[in-house]
Simulated scan of single mutants.
Amino acid sequence: MPAFYLTLMAVLLAGVGARDQVTVAGLTQRQGARPGVLVVALLSAVLTGALAGWAAALMLAELPPPARQIFAAIALGLAGLESMAWAPRPDPREPTNSLGALLLVLLMHQIADAPRFLVFGMGVGLAGPVPAGLAGVLGGSALVAFAWFQPHLFSTPAARWTRRIVGAALVLAALAAVLEIFNLV
């Protein structure tokens, strides 16, 4: 069960202020709390979390145990870099109010974001793709639901700074993991 708990904590931290959250919060502020937006956001989080867990299961079968830890450290570092480098637009544009378009946008935001990198990497590194995938689904769902219920919190500078600080912490954790793997610490 460490794969579930560690992945859930990592996803919840890395997902604060992410592009999917900002998109859901921006639409909710502009359009009101439409239940369809919440349903689409939850569907997207479930699909991408399950996809990351499935990809981790495929990769786990291919990598020998020593390489799994290195792979997890790389995924952790990529998640941190993604959090620091790609800041979400503060006011997403949605001219059509289409739930189908929103689903596509959220899938594209989530498919390669920091939380899904973490699900993928930790599923491989901790040899638990199913618990990591479940944690990704639960954590991703909680993040978009929070954005729908509290959209005003994501237009503040604190949300953007939190994302960058968590990204830096993930990069440092990846460096520490690499140093430990190669017995340099």
Rank of each mutant, 00 (worst) to 15 (best):
V124N: 06
H152T: 15
A87K: 10
G80E: 11
S83Q: 09
A176L: 13
V40L: 00
G15S: 04
H152K: 10
Y5N: 10
W54K: 12
L175F: 13
W148K: 04
A25D: 00
V130N: 00
V171H: 07
G100H: 10
W54G: 03
A101Q: 13
V105S: 05
V24K: 01
M59E: 12
R19Q: 12
R163M: 05
A169Q: 10
L58F: 09
F154A: 01
L102M: 10
L27T: 01
G15L: 02
V11N: 02
H109Q: 04
M9S: 11
L184N: 04
L175S: 09
M84H: 08
P65F: 12
G128D: 04
A10L: 05
R116S: 09
R34V: 02
A177Q: 15
S83H: 09
L47C: 01
I111E: 10
M1I: 12
A50Q: 10
G139L: 01
P129Y: 08
A87H: 04
V24L: 02
G136V: 02
P115Q: 06
V39S: 12
P157S: 09
A87Y: 08
E62M: 12
M122R: 09
F71I: 03
V124S: 08
L78D: 03
V37I: 15
W86F: 15
G139Y: 01
M59Y: 06
G15D: 01
M59G: 06
L42Y: 03
A142L: 14
A56S: 08
A73D: 00
R34S: 14
G53N: 02
G133S: 04
W86H: 13
L78T: 03
A176G: 14
G49R: 08
V46P: 01
S44I: 06
A10V: 07
E82R: 15
R30E: 13
A41L: 05
G128E: 00
A168Y: 10
V171E: 03
A168T: 06
M108W: 14
L58S: 12
L43V: 11
D91R: 14
P35E: 11
G49C: 10
P129E: 04
V124A: 09
